[in-house]
């Protein structure tokens, strides 16, 4: 015989299904934090490359920071219990921050090295695409 829930049963099952989907979906929101951290990392890398002197110290901070933060974030992401849908999720934000990072470096090096008025806004602009994408993920 065909299973036949009452309208009340059906409504209760729907409510439970939506509740559980929301709970598990919420566990995939870590991707928002992931995007924001990488946005801030891009911005910080821009600042370090533009403002830190001398060259040796600049490259040491840049490479060590990049390796440590990236490794930490990749490990953290690997430990998450739910993976959000979409393997290419956030690619416009990655492309945006990456491109802006490249443009900021090309435009500012070497002529504007050490100029806070250039590197500080550049870092903010570089960090924006990923940070906004992350904020939107957290709010979704």
């Amino acid at each position: 015989m065909t299973y036949e829930p009452t309208p009340q049963d059906a409504a209760a099952q729907l409510s439970r299904a939506h509740g559980i989907a929301a709970r598990v979906g919420g566990r995939a929101r870590w991707i928002g934090v992931y995007f924001i951290v990488f946005g801030v990392l891009f911005g910080a890398a821009t600042l370090v490359l533009g403002l830190v002197q001398p060259l040796v110290l600049r490259m040491a901070i840049w490479s060590a920071g990049l390796v440590v933060v990236m490794a930490g974030m990749i490990l953290w992401a690997h430990r998450q219990k739910a993976v959000p849908r979409g393997r290419l999720r956030g690619w416009p934000a990655w492309a945006g921050s990456g491109s802006l990072y490249g443009v900021a470096l090309i435009a500012g090096t070497p002529a504007l090295l050490g100029r806070v008025w250039y590197w500080l806004p550049a870092a903010v602009v570089v960090a924006l695409p990923l940070s906004v994408a992350g904020w939107r993920e957290l709010r979704a």
Partner: peptide
């Protein structure tokens, strides 16, 4: 139904979470 609904919004989820 709960198991399938739980997986609806994610690409994959760990057994323990479900």
């Amino acid at each position: 139904l709960s198991i399938v609904a739980a997986l609806q919004g994610v690409e994959r989820a760990e057994f323990a979470l479900i």
